[in-house]
Design a protein around this nucleic acid. Structure first.
Length: 499
RNA sequence: CGCGGGGUAGAGCAGCCUGGCAGCUCGGCGGGCCCAUAACCCGCAGGUCGUCGGUUCGAGUCCGACCCCCGCAACCA
């Protein structure tokens, strides 16, 4: 039994949870559930990034203190994950005491190891925003919100000596000691090393809403040093030694492609500087457009996960989001496609298959599993292989393809064998066919568990397999687990059609 | 010369790394079936794979040039 530590990004909560944060969270949940089913000891972490100027600003706009503001929003995120049936083991908040002490210890360690030096940060500073702005933010040389010309000022900052760690880091990425996936993202990161990568500042004096720097309390730990640390502070870096030792390094950080550089360069370098192992893999997922356009409030095409949940329910929402395009690539989501796909894959596909198979068992055998038969053993084993291969490589969409294939195998098998005719002519053959169908349904349920846990449980329960996750996975995924005379029960309305 | 993604059937996508029958889902059309959630199965139509050139016995795939679209990202460290 091995361990599996998987993380999502921690979301910057200056707004409500939306589909952009739900997507990687669901995908990570699928991977976490798969590994648990396999028997791995899993630690699945998500959380919220709650410091920084933007949050202070948003809080002020809402007439709240920053702490009140993030308390409310982080609760919203937790509620959303709860409704999506996310099985995270912890939800790390960067304003939590556990995190703060961890960050302080990490920064002290970096300082002690000589990885931090004092320097000057130069940039345009907008008095109105009370923050540094980049030239890109300016409109006609002025701050777009305050319509003033920002001043070029410099302040004392503490810098992280990134350069010192780059050659060793490049080697790790090159040799695959730190895997960056998908492949093209790895090339992108290696490309960064060919350009100049400058040291970055890990503190700010102009910010108030953050963690005070232990060796200079006039400064605050700058966001990235603060946020990235969550992956170790959640495990109790320097406070809960046992948990930390057991799960660190992370097996995979699931990240958005916008934050690759921070996760593949800054973060591993910081870890190296603190004498800690680097993560085994960073997996970057893609972004999506909605109906061909970038999702945005101004366009009005934002998809709210709570609305999807209301319309389709937890399991279908999970399925629909993950099946739009390959995980790890960009793609487009069409709102109109959801209903179509729900009906075809879930109602007509999985729901109907479960329904037809279980009612045959009921009708022809009085709801008892007939004698075993191995006719579909090899075909199902092959589909399992594509399923596990996909998930071992974080290809969540590949698992969905395997599920579809198994569903098709089952439906096709019904047509070929025509049980309704066998019922009149050949009782023995009928029992073989129905056994095979029930066993296919069991495998389908098992494969569904990672993606649609509630549906999986319903299907497996209908076959008398309530305690499936407590069992040995190799056995469980092999053919012929369903014992003769096991009681079956019909399910109704697994996925009712949507008109 | 900032960086990245992309252009393959009516729609959405895979295939390209590692060249060898152009594939999947939805939709359309036709047929079959009656176990099932008006579900399921089979077949058909539909593509000069963005353009031009090159390499090759063979190019969607490799090389070069060009055209066009999108993003720099989830509301913004």
């Amino acid at each position: 039994m091995s361990k599996f530590y998987i993380t999502t990004p921690i979301y910057y909560i200056n707004g409500e949870p939306h589909i952009g944060s739900a997507y990687p969270t669901i995908a990570s949940d699928v991977l976490a559930r798969y590994h648990r089913l396999k028997g791995d000891e899993v630690y699945f972490l998500t959380g919220s990034d709650e410091h920084g100027g933007k949050i202070a600003e948003a809080a002020e706009k809402a007439g709240k203190t920053p702490q009140e503001f993030v308390d409310e929003l982080s609760a919203k995120f937790m509620e959303c994950w709860d409704e999506l049936n996310i099985s995270n083991d912890d939800f790390i908040r960067t304003t939590s005491q556990k995190h703060k002490t961890g960050v302080v210890k990490l920064v002290e360690k970096l300082k002690a190891n000589g990885a931090i030096y004092e320097g000057e940060y130069e940039g345009y500073y907008c008095q109105g925003c009370e923050a540094f702005v980049t030239e890109k933010d300016l409109v006609g040389g002025k701050c777009p919100t305050h319509l003033t010309v920002p001043q070029m000022i410099s302040e004392k900052n503490y810098f992280f000596n990134l350069k010192k760690y780059l050659p060793e880091l490049e080697r790790k990425i090159d040799t695959g000691e730190l895997k960056i996936l998908p492949e093209h993202k790895r090339n992108e990161v290696l490309g960064l090393f060919k350009q100049e990568i400058g040291d970055f500042s890990i503190s700010r004096s102009s910010l108030k809403w953050g963690i005070p720097l232990p060796f200079d309390e006039s400064q605050v730990v700058y966001v990235w040093a603060d946020a990235l640390s969550n992956y170790i502070t959640a495990l109790g870096y320097d406070s809960d030694d046992e948990k930390f030792k057991k799960f660190w390094p992370a097996d995979v950080h699931i990240v958005g492609k916008d934050i690759i550089k921070f996760h593949c360069v800054f973060w591993p370098a910081m870890l190296m500087a603190a004498d800690l192992p680097t993560p085994k893999a960073v997996y970057a997922h893609g972004f999506f457009t909605v109906d061909g356009q970038k999702m945005g409030k101004s366009i009005g095409n934002v998809i709210d996960p709570f609305n999807l949940l209301k319309e389709f329910g937890t399991d279908a929402t999970r399925y629909l989001l993950l099946s739009q395009f390959p995980f790890g690539q960009d793609g487009d989501i069409k709102a109109s496609q959801f209903v179509i796909q729900y009906n075809s894959d879930l109602a007509n596909g999985i729901g109907n298959f479960a329904s037809r198979v279980l009612s045959m068992a009921e009708k022809y055998f009085g709801g008892a599993v007939p004698a075993k038969n191995n006719e579909l053993k090899n075909q199902v084993a092959e589909i399992w292989k594509s399923y596990t291969d996909a998930l071992e490589n974080f290809q969540v969409d590949g698992a969905i393809s395997a599920i579809r294939k198994l569903n098709q195998l089952g439906d096709g098998y019904v047509e070929i064998n025509k049980p309704w005719e066998l019922a009149k002519t050949d009782e023995t053959r009928l029992s073989e066919v129905v056994y095979n169908l029930l066993e296919v349904l069991r495998h389908l349920g098992l494969m569904l568990y990672a993606v649609m846990p509630e549906t999986a449980e319903k299907i497996l329960a209908s076959l008398g397999q309530q305690n499936f996750y407590a069992q040995n996975f190799d056995l469980l995924s092999s053919w012929g687990v369903l014992e003769q005379n096991t009681k079956t029960e019909k399910i109704s309305g697994l996925f009712p059609r949507i008109q």
